[in-house]
Design a protein around this nucleic acid. Structure first.
Lengths: 194, 194, 194, 194
DNA sequence: ACATAAACGAGACGGTACGTCTCGTCTTTTG
DNA sequence: CAAAAGACGAGACGTACCGTCTCGTTTATGT
């Protein structure tokens, strides 16, 4: 009748302190030794945590890093009404993101960790959506003169920034000007510095 | 004076048979397991060669792979007189190169192997020079409407292709069209398929 | 049927259902994978019980196993009046006990778990007492011709059986004959098979 | 013409210095922390050696320990012409061997490491052979009054000593007397102390 | 011709990190 | 408030490659 054979219980909650310590250790290690030299053991030791605890929540190194980097992202952009300025802002934001550790994640993990791609897209989805909206708004204004494939254009921007970073070439105003001009196709009254 | 402490001496020549076997084993391994899974030990075993022999000639994994890939490169492009067709050809050639193993080399090594960048540039220098010439010819014809920074434009092309490869998005005619249009800024009478 | 699911007075009773499930899971696991492969986690999972519940009642793995094995023991021997038959029975009983899982407990735990020894002695005390009585009765009959040290003799029997088990040598009639003869010192009319 | 594609070389020799350091570290660790607390990592660290080097030569912990212990064995016994003294010597030698680390090896490894048994037998074979010869010599003299199964008798001696060790009971003269008397069946003029 | 010296195979080695496993403890939730 | 569920720190496991280092052999060179 009053059978309660077994079946109580909930389980311990995640230890938020350890969780945060791991993410912080990950970011600190990234800053100090870079992506390739970051090891799970190093992060565990630095966070004062058992390796297994890291593997419990982040089965792959890339997941850990993507989440850690994700805590540093700023809010998505919105159009300011000026197409050229908007596009320039998109490029600058891309430089901030892809020009940093995120670029290393792309370079190192996406190609050979099939789970990293989707996870990165989850993280960056809102930003890509915002950038897509900005491009479409510019097209609606007539400032992008062709039937735009926003995915391709954003791939061009991301790729260009990533490549420059990998080649250790400057991601400066000159490059931003060039890329902006390329995207806007000379349709917008430009004031290129050189 | 003439340093000859104890007689003469020659030294054995490089074993070309082993050399080629290593490059072939490298390419075969690349094709089968990809860049990240390629190990020096695996290549040595496959080539029937001692690890030290590989290290003697290619002190870094990236050097080995770059040389192996380099044996597969075709001849550089030349302008055909039609700017849009030229630029399209440059993009297609980039897809051939960067869309393949070379893209993995960029992604995996350039970022953390300081010697890989210069070596890659040595290898790809003639191609980059040819592509630069094509862009400058187009600019001379007035088909590229701004003071072109050929380096930046080639970085955009390479980066876009690399990024699409990493994201596993198609490197097809549609993408080629989009990128061609972006570069040519809509100044050239286009016949886009879609 | 001593169900007291919500006792008001003082403290919840031990959950007999879980207790038995644990002992059964222990025995089943012992039979299937053996002593060394038995893990607390495995037993807990099989019994549908939390690990902590096991540790609450059996602080050491050896305790759990000793109690589980203890539920399987048959009743102690008594002298049948015939010294040789008695001693043979003692040996056979020892083969039943030590030749089974108990032998593994001796081998694995006694040496390095200081609490396992006393607990085993608690469990086996009645049997050792019974065997001692049988040996002393034989000595009283004059069938054991020396001032017997029953502890030493039982140690010899236990040890011989344990060693044969460890060495995977047969614990058969021939061995029983040999050991019986050794103990009885040839003082009893023997009918050894060979 | 005469192709010798590849097929030279023999490989680097074993590093005897490291080899000995490992065995010494094993023995020292055994003495200090005992069998169960000995870890491969501890031995490697103590010997100043990579773990993989240990695993290369001793794939199992038991192998390493057996070889280490084997370096400490003294020469086998020989009969001195006196059966009782011989048997007593066999027992004492067994106490030296099995009463020490070897006993732990029996207890811990033989039962669950199928390769440890044969390896131990290889190591102890000469000693068992010597002891067998001693027993047979005693039987030939008529001092062992039954058709002796030397294997069984040696198992009894080994087992008794092992069991006493595991139970932490003394392996002293009294025990030696008792066991000697048991083996010799009272046929030899004895001078038992008690 | 013959010593010299480099190239080579084989593979041992110290080292680092991997990802997994089990232990015994601790925390939270559920009934 | 006991028991489930299960997270946690600790630390050993055995494996995989790394890049270096003997070995003993093979092959040219330059006296």
């Amino acid at each position: 009748m009053t059978e309660t054979p077994h079946g109580a219980g909930g389980g311990r909650k995640r230890n938020e302190h350890a969780h945060e310590a791991i993410l912080e250790a990950t970011l600190a290690t990234l800053r100090e030794v870079g992506y390739q030299q970051l090891t799970m053991e190093g992060v565990a030791a630095r966070a004062g945590v058992a390796k297994a605890t890291i593997y419990r929540w982040w089965p792959q190194k890339s997941h850990l890093i993507i989440e850690a980097v994700g805590t540093q992202l700023t809010t998505p952009l919105q159009t300011q009404g000026n197409s050229e300025a908007d596009i320039r802002a998109v490029i600058q934001r891309t430089i901030e993101f892809v020009g940093g550790v995120l670029g290393d994640v792309y370079a190192a993990d996406i190609a050979h960790d099939p789970t990293a791609g989707p996870q990165l897209e989850d993280l960056l989805g809102p930003y890509r959506a915002a950038h897509t909206a900005i491009l479409l708004a510019a097209a609606a204004r007539g400032d992008l003169p062709y039937t735009i494939d926003a995915t391709a254009v954003l791939d061009v921007i991301n790729g260009a920034v990533l490549f420059r970073k990998l080649m250790k070439r400057p991601l400066d105003d000159h490059f931003t000007d060039q890329l902006t001009a390329l995207i806007t196709s000379g349709q917008i009254p430009r004031t290129l510095t050189a």
